[in-house]
Each structure stands twice: as C-alpha cells, then as structure tokens.
C-alpha cells in the first residue's frame, strides 16, 4: 500500500476502513473465542439459573427466582460461603510470614546467600499442587504425622491433633498447606517492594537517630502498602477459586469432608453440577459467586486506582 497523492475524502475513508480491518484481524480469533466460549455460556448460565434444567441439559420450565431462594436459604450453601470466606482470610496469614522473611532476606548482604534464600523459599510454590496435598496428607496425619510427632517431642506428651480429620480443625490444616505453598510468592512480592524503597529514606532516618524498629514501622510498612493491598486482594480472590487441594483432601469429592467443613462455594457448585446434577441450582450458585467476586474486584480496581 503506497502513499496516495492528493487523497480525496472518500479515499481517506477507504484507507481508514482498510486500516481498521487490519487491526481487527489482530483481534479476530480472540474475539470469536470470547464470544463463543465466554459470553454465550455466561448468558446461558444466567438463563439456566432461572429455569429447571434436566440432567441432559434441556430446559424444562421457568421457575423465576426460586433457584436463588433455595440457594440462599440452604444452610449448606451458607456454610459453604462461610467456609470460603474463612479459608480465604486464614490464607492471608501467609502475607505477614512472607513479609517478615522478605525483610530478613533483604537485609542479607551476601549476594549469593540472598539468591539461595530467594530460590529456596520460593520452591514450595513451584511444586504441583496435587503433589503437595498428597505429601501433606501424611505430614498432617493424626497419628505418626510429622507435625504431631514434632509437637509431641517438644511438649513432652503425646499430641494427636486431627488436622485433617477433626471438622473443627480441618481449616487450620488446609491453611497450613496453603501458607506453606504461598509464603514464597508473598516473600518475593514483598522483596520487590522492599527493594524499591529508596535507601536515602533510611539514611535520613538514621541521621535523625531512628533505630531499626523505628525505621521499620514508619518507613518500611507504609511504603509497602501497595504490595500489601495487592497481596490482600489477590489472596481473597484466589480464595474464591480454591478447588484442587480441598477436592483432594475431601477424598476426591466436592463434599468438603469431613462434615462439610472444607466445602467452598465452588465445590458446592460442582456438587450440584456433577455429583448430584441440578443445573438450574448450580448456575444460580455460580451467578451468586460471580456477584460476590465482581464486587470484590470492583473494590480492588477502585482502591488501586486511587493510589
């Protein structure tokens, strides 16, 4: 396409039109996929949620808001919401752990040592989630598990805590696994944040006679705010998609064994989609999940944009 001499108005319009087509060709496969595989199914899901749908996937009859009513009044669904929130909040304890380790690693002067620590702490994050759960099912065993044995030796009496079998403690067990996996990631993000704090600030504080703890409290933590918020929001959002490890801990089912204590919203939806099919209900649950996540993401966008 060469330059035209003296383009008329029409010529220019054609040129622009052709240019737009070229740009759109960059987007074509993506948008076809988006339309067919994302938007249409999403609308279908919303449609399903207002109907009773057979196991084969055919719409039987319209039921209005009934699916939603049933979902929201179902005690197990509300329990699932509660579980999800609790697990998400508990997994946030990885943030201070990661932060403290990051502070430690940051203060190490020897480059080699620092690299070793960076790589070492991040390693758990790189191991396939499924493998981690298989291993931890042994470590958190009620008898002979490494943790219980260690505690028994430390405290001098036999400790047999059912980290994964006592319904009131399973969330702690699941959180131990989660924190172990993600502390490396949190550490790296905090490390990046720490390393971007200009050293002049510290030097100025030292000039003014501030001790290490003082500097930490008044310089480090406030300037890490962005990173903390990022980790906080992504932690909560990831909490809502949590499925794999809890599924395996429940014995390859979405029931949240034992006693439904580990059942998250997503697992509840899965249960009503595949283990006990009632597609209208599960789509209603999915829409409710969407509303919750959408709200949180909107808050996220708002908060990060104002910074």
């Amino acid at each position: 396409m060469g330059k035209r001499s003296g383009p008329g108005k029409r010529g220019k319009a054609i040129y622009k039109w052709k240019k737009s087509l070229v740009w759109l060709s960059f987007l074509l496969p993506t948008f076809v996929c988006l339309l067919v595989l994302t938007y249409i199914p999403t609308f279908k899901a919303v449609n399903f949620s207002f109907h009773e749908v057979s196991v084969i996937g055919e719409i039987q009859r319209s039921v209005g808001l009934q699916n939603y009513k049933v979902m929201l009044s179902s005690s197990s669904f509300r329990k699932a919401i509660g579980n999800t929130l609790m697990l998400a909040v508990m997994s946030l304890s990885a943030i201070p752990v990661g932060f403290v380790i990051a502070c430690g690693v940051n203060s190490v002067i020897n480059k080699k040592a620092q690299t070793i620590f960076r790589l070492g702490f991040y390693m758990p994050n790189i191991i396939t989630g499924v493998s981690i759960v298989l291993i931890f099912q042994y470590i958190l065993q009620v008898d002979n598990g490494l943790i219980n044995l260690a505690l028994s030796n430390l405290l001098g009496r036999k400790i047999e805590i059912g980290w994964l079998s006592d319904p009131s403690l399973t969330k702690v067990g699941a959180t131990i696994i989660q924190v172990w996996t993600t502390l490396g990631y949190n550490m790296l993000i905090c490390l990046a944040g720490l390393q971007s704090i200009p050293t002049e600030l510290y030097e100025a504080a030292m000039m003014d006679g501030g001790g290490a703890l003082h500097r930490w409290r008044y310089i480090t933590i406030p300037l890490m705010r962005n990173n903390f918020i990022f980790l906080f929001i992504t932690g909560i959002i990831n909490g809502f998609s949590r499925f794999t490890d809890l599924y395996i801990l429940s014995g390859n089912s979405s029931s949240g064994k034992p006693a439904g204590s580990l059942q998250t919203i997503l697992m509840y939806i899965y249960q009503y989609s595949f283990e006990n099919p009632s597609y209208g209900l599960s789509c209603a649950g999915a829409v409710i999940l969407f509303v919750i996540v959408f709200t949180i993401t909107s808050i996220n966008l708002k908060v990060t944009k104002t910074i």
Binding site: A286, L289, F290
Partner: peptide
C-alpha cells in the same frame, strides 16, 4: 472491545462451567 476483555477477568471461570460443558 477492550472493556469486554477486561470484563472477562472479573467473571470467574466457574460461572460458565456448566453451559460450556454442555456445549
């Protein structure tokens, strides 16, 4: 169009799980 792409990030995958499966 860009907004449509961004919006996808806010829709959890699980929402379209069933219809996608049936499709």
């Amino acid at each position: 169009l860009f907004l449509l792409v961004l919006a996808v990030m806010m829709i959890p995958f699980e929402v379209r799980l069933i219809p996608l499966f049936l499709q």
